[in-house]
Design a binder for these strands. Structure first.
Lengths: 345, 345
DNA sequence: GGTCCCCATGTGACCGGTCACAATCCTGGC
DNA sequence: GCCAGGATTGTGACCGGTCACATGGGGACC
């Protein structure tokens, strides 16, 4: 290690070369594990590298060779549990491969703003991962120039515009199907649905899984309530549903919506699960501690993030084309918020 | 705009120069707003830039000039509300200045692992923002080489090792003081405290604000309960406190802990706020929708993130030394979870 | 009309790596 | 003892910008 201090310009390969008495190219070969370097020479170079505290400049590497070992994640939000977990998963996998992780937030779904963000991300070099769970993300995914390596984290594969690109997703349809079946199996006549916004104009995977379960059971299909992402919207939707005495089971597009619904039911004096059952999606960290604790479907967002990176890594370096990391199956977690419907009389 | 297609190497300043019939240096002057370029020439160059769809390579810029317009955020976590909001604030401010934002997660507080992450962040070039709310973050902040521009988001200014560096923080002491006073003013004899881990071995700002309020009121000082960050730890702490009938008010280091405590009290059959009052910190999005809704202190994490970036920006470009963005004062939000103590006797 | 100076522009080197190719060393085979 | 050929190593150009300095072309001024 260099102990000589002096806030100096960091050592370059030419400095190392001089110190080791070889040419800069030989140093380059050593740091790239090129086979044809004499062991004694390699030894000398490595000593010099250590001595000078040399670190290869990622910038120069990117400029000269084109490869940049970087990912930029484009997302509409960093604070929602699902998004944040995906980001965490991507970072984890990227770190293992010593990739740099950049982040760009799509603050608005405005065409021009999205395009600007995509350009910024492209300027960073390297690959792109777009979280396309919402209109902004879907637009961004669509706005990525064809020559850029990109992976989309999508709601469902059928709903996205360009079929030629690699995507990862969780089986939302199956998740919704499971949750709905669970509620029906408890004896509820039907299940109402408070939806998260669909990322596209088409019906979301969660909605169609819910619908399928209802059809199979021959249950009536109420109109889904359009919610949004947060508890406030869930609260608003819940107030409307609470007024209808026929409502005995509510499936919510995510745990935050479910929280708002629970609160609204409480305010309306309807007990959960005594009179109404509620279920959510995601299994956010707080869901197990609510009162009543929330029945939900656990989705492996971190694993999804890791899978997205693995896929991108495969696109970036053909050498790394490992079998795609399987994303785990959604898992129903039954807690206190779901139970048998009140006896009809 | 270039419409000629052909997945080609992007245009460089020399391509633009040729197209405009000038030298590459002139193009460089144009994109840098250098004053001494004849208007007609500038016009011609701008036309060529537009024609070829030229974008200046951030990589080449960084290599040649040293300036990199990038921040890397080092954090122990991306999913906790506070951390995620800070990140969001940083990104927002960075985007406005067209800085790239990178992220590195400190997965372990292990000395070597932290050092490796700091090196990785340094390699990315540009400035550093370290969220030092926990041991891993504090170690990382300490491990940043002196010559690197860095801003720390710290728990409290007195608790960090190196006094020569720029920091931002919220007034946690004041926040804890306010919350404790609120509970005391309702008539509680004293207030118990479930602490988040201190970032250092010293007493945290929240703890000392709590203690100060107790002393001023002449209230007894119970030992703080060491919690952690999540609802699970809050739950464990809550179970212990629930057994003690003398406990009538509990202040929690954050809203997640408070959630766990609420749950534990519910399980123990102690009503909130009838028998026990609970308050938290942060005003996480779900806190208003809990049952009972949570009394808490709102902290402006997004603003804190913006302030951190503004400070770093000032360090990076002396030209930008604007007056430091003030971080807003903590604000007490009184909700259902706090109330008068049960009548004694 | 000549000199000075500023405006506008061009040239060469450099940032820290890589790539393609040339040059040298060494060794075995005949 | 000589030559082919692989193993090692070195040289020059380049990636796409910037920087420092040189150069040419007008006024302004005397």
């Amino acid at each position: 290690m260099n102990v000589t201090g002096h806030t100096r310009r960091p050592a370059s390969i030419r400095d190392v070369a001089t110190a080791a008495g070889v040419s800069y190219q030989t140093v380059s070969r050593v740091i790239n594990d090129h086979p044809s370097v004499k062991p004694t020479t390699r030894e000398r170079v490595l000593a010099a590298i250590d001595e000078l505290g040399f670190r290869r400049s990622a910038t120069a590497l990117a400029l000269a060779s084109g490869r940049s070992r970087a990912v930029t994640v484009l997302t509409a939000n960093t604070t929602h549990y699902g998004y944040a977990s995906i980001l965490q998963g991507i970072e984890e996998a990227a770190r293992a491969e010593s990739y740099a992780v950049g982040i760009g937030v799509l603050e608005s779904a405005d065409e021009a703003a999205v395009a600007a963000e995509v350009r910024r991300a492209a300027d960073a070099g390297g690959g792109l991962i777009v979280i396309a769970y919402d209109p902004a993300g879907v637009k961004a995914l669509g706005a990525v120039p064809a020559e850029l390596p990109v992976v989309g984290v999508v709601e469902t594969p059928a709903s996205t515009p360009d079929p030629g690109r690699p995507w990862v997703w969780t089986d939302d349809r199956e998740a919704a199907y499971q949750a709905t079946r669970h509620l029906l199996s408890l004896g509820h006549e039907t299940v109402h649905y408070v939806a998260i916004p669909s990322s596209t104009r088409r019906t979301s995977a969660r909605t169609s899984g819910w619908r399928q379960a209802l059809r199979e059971a021959g249950a009536p299909e109420p109109r889904p309530v359009q919610g949004s992402w947060g508890p406030a919207e869930g609260h608003a939707a819940g107030r409307r549903l609470a007024r209808d005495p026929a409502v005995s089971a509510i499936l919510c597009g995510n745990d935050d919506l479910a929280l708002g619904v629970l609160r609204a039911l409480h305010e309306a004096g309807r007990s959960v699960p005594g009179e109404v059952s509620v279920a959510g999606f995601d299994d956010a960290p707080h869901s197990a501690y609510l009162t009543p604790s929330l029945t939900t479907v656990r989705l492996d967002f971190t694993g999804l993030g890791r899978a997205a990176f693995a896929l991108l890594h495969g696109v970036l370096e053909e050498a790394a084309r490992i079998a795609p990391h399987p994303v785990s199956v959604p898992e129903l977690v039954v807690r206190e918020s779901s139970g048998r419907p009140p006896a009809t009389g």
